[in-house]
Design a protein around this nucleic acid. Structure first.
Lengths: 253, 253
DNA sequence: GAGTGGTCTAGACCACGCG
DNA sequence: GCGTGGTCTAGACCACTCA
């Protein structure tokens, strides 16, 4: 470092810290390894704990670190590639679908959903909960809204709720011809219920994938899927692998 | 004080604060309006400024607020729907492409890119910089890597660099037949150069879209596009948003 | 130069996981 | 109970924008 001034344009400490830590992660740590605790790390770098935490937060956001209260900070594995919308003409629940139905109810949806489904504001719709795991870890939680009149033959279904009912709704939905599906991705923060299901704290960064299922010129269903932003890389089109984004040479050659 | 008492299960202050502010944004503020400054807001809610900032950061992450140093905190407009990969069989620079070429050079790419392009580690490739705007605001910055042997007829091109050369590379690229393109989206933080182009601070949350252009069984080009996560909603498939009205594209003259 | 958000400090206490 | 990360405080100074 030297005793002279650093740069004419001073970099924030936490930014520099992040760079140093990032390089250390590449060279001196392996996946799953536990880092020293925040107080020790802060002391080692001669900064306040809050500053150190700012650097750790960024690294966690980039999927380099994983922090768990009561446990510690560990080096995260590379992000998991998760296929989204590979099949442009498949309904949810089709063969190869990796979602697990959890529950289904018939309720009045949020106003924004009702508007998009073009149902009445007070009209109940089927609300399905599904979850998705990858490599044994939860990666996404979904709310799937199905317009009631899209699955009219469901009235005599046995189960009033539960996974069985969810599967029944999906089965009826597949009888329709799917015209197309439209996806959108944006950044969000996990609501309390999603956070719990994703094993994260509320407010954790998530990628929100909204899918509109269009059939016969109207929207028959809307899916709002919440993916863990720290551990997931969403893939569109038919590739799964190959990380390009600033990967260290940890990969087996 | 208008602030209500905490619950029996204590919610973090910043979380409660975020909820209160969010509701206030809906009911008492309009888009573009300037909020009171952080010190005043903190005093009004009876919390430290750092706590108030934690709530504001979340709201900014969700695209509800926009904060600019030296200016203030304003209510953000709804996120812009940005089409990504709508045409599965279009090269970059095809008709309707909304990217603006900025520069082009011939350099050795990062190792990860070289591996994905299946070029030699020391082999130079064409590196194009492009930028994308929407409604007059910069929304994305792109680095496009084109394998040199994908555009062999470029050797006699006049311009050694600059936007003209970038357009020349794209023109040559379009002579090939595109087999398919594969997209991946993940969360990242803006590098210093991207941040500057996106009018954000370094480390700002971005959505990184990686696209592999496959032709004849190999990857001819790779694009790494960095979108502002606070202002953008990426749409896949052939439509814009649910409740977002997307204006006409700005064609450069 | 006044006012804004951005960075940083040195503490304190709390909620959680685990032995 | 102990150690971890998560929350919170009350200051300070810096970098930036704009009148």
């Amino acid at each position: 470092m030297g005793t002279t001034q650093l740069e004419s344009v001073p970099e924030p400490k936490y930014w520099h810290l992040k760079t140093v830590l990032s390089e250390a992660l590449d060279s001196e740590f392996s996946v799953g390894e536990i880092l020293p605790n925040e107080r020790d790390l802060a002391a080692r770098f001669g900064v306040a704990r809050a500053t150190l935490r700012q650097a750790l937060e960024q690294l966690e956001l980039e999927g380099r670190l994983q922090r768990r209260r009561g446990v510690g900070t560990t080096v995260a594995p590379p992000r998991v590639g998760v296929a989204v919308g590979t099949e442009q003409h498949d309904w949810p629940g089709a063969a190869g679908d990796t979602w697990q139905p959890v529950d289904a109810t018939l309720e009045v949806p949020p106003a924004a959903v009702a508007a998009a489904l073009e149902t009445g504001a007070e009209q109940p719709v089927h609300i399905l909960r599904r979850s998705r795991t990858s490599h044994g870890q939860p990666v996404a939680a979904e709310l799937l809204y199905v317009a009631a009149d899209s699955v009219p033959d469901l009235s005599a279904i046995d189960a009033p709720s539960g996974a069985a009912r969810a599967r029944a709704v999906l089965r009826e939905l597949r009888r329709l011809e799917l015209e197309r599906r439209e996806n959108a991705v944006e950044l969000g923060s996990a609501r309390a219920d999603d956070a719990k299901e994703l094993d994260r704290l509320p407010g954790a960064p998530v990628l929100v994938v909204t899918t509109r299922y269009v059939t016969g010129g109207r929207v028959a269903a809307i899916s709002v899927a919440t993916y863990r932003a720290d551990t997931c890389r969403l893939t569109f089109g038919d590739s799964g692998g190959v990380e390009i984004h600033q990967g260290p040479e940890r990969r087996a050659s």
